[in-house]
């Protein structure tokens, strides 16, 4: 009797195990990505010819972008109106450094939803107050009101109230910066 009971239990147990096994194998939970199969490498037997031809590599390098901004080449004239900085400015007591894109660092700053316009001259080295004096003397001719300006000596910038970007650039180009 006891033997028979045990055999019933064991058979039931093995049956339930089989159900569990089959369940775990077929368990698909569509709401989760975890039940999906891992992607196996698809075997490709495409043949590729590996070349190290320097001529062909040249055409690759030709289309790759440069890592740093290239230096401008000296030319007789620049039709676009861009001018390089003068070769020697040792006589000046101040100096405006070009940006890394070789442009003059003069910007128009708009604030208060475009109603307030400021001209910002950055990267001023040397005697910034002397430069401010000379620049304002030049710009004052175009303005009725006295131009308000602010100098930050440590950061090396001059900020003026009003849009004088083109006039300032013109003045700086006259001075060969």
């Amino acid at each position: 009797m006891a033997m028979a009971f045990a055999s019933i239990i064991s058979s039931k147990f093995s049956y339930s195990c089989a159900i569990l096994k089959s369940q775990t194998k077929q368990l698909i939970r569509y709401s989760s990505y975890k039940s999906s199969q891992f992607l196996e490498d698809v075997e490709t037997n495409r043949k590729y010819d590996i070349t190290r031809d320097p001529d062909e590599w040249n055409s690759v390098e030709r289309i790759l972008p440069p890592t740093t901004v290239p230096e401008p080449i000296k030319k007789k004239s620049y039709p676009s109106g861009w001018k390089p900085s003068a070769v020697n400015l040792n006589h000046m007591s101040y100096y405006i450094e070009r940006t890394k894109n070789h442009m003059l660092p003069v910007y128009l700053k708009l604030c208060a939803r475009g109603t307030r316009r400021h001209t910002l001259v950055r990267k001023v080295k040397g005697d910034i107050f002397e430069m401010e004096k000379q620049l304002l003397k030049f710009l004052q001719k175009e303005s009725f009101k006295p131009i308000r300006s602010q100098v930050n000596e440590f950061a090396g910038y001059i900020r003026m109230n009003g849009d004088f970007v083109n006039a300032t650039k013109f003045w700086l180009e006259q001075k060969h910066f």
């Binding site: 440069p66 890592t67 901004v69 890394k100």
Partner: peptide, 8 residues
């Protein structure tokens, strides 16, 4: 210096 003169 490379970062300060980066193209991109």
């Amino acid at each position: 210096m490379q970062h300060l003169h980066k193209n991109d």
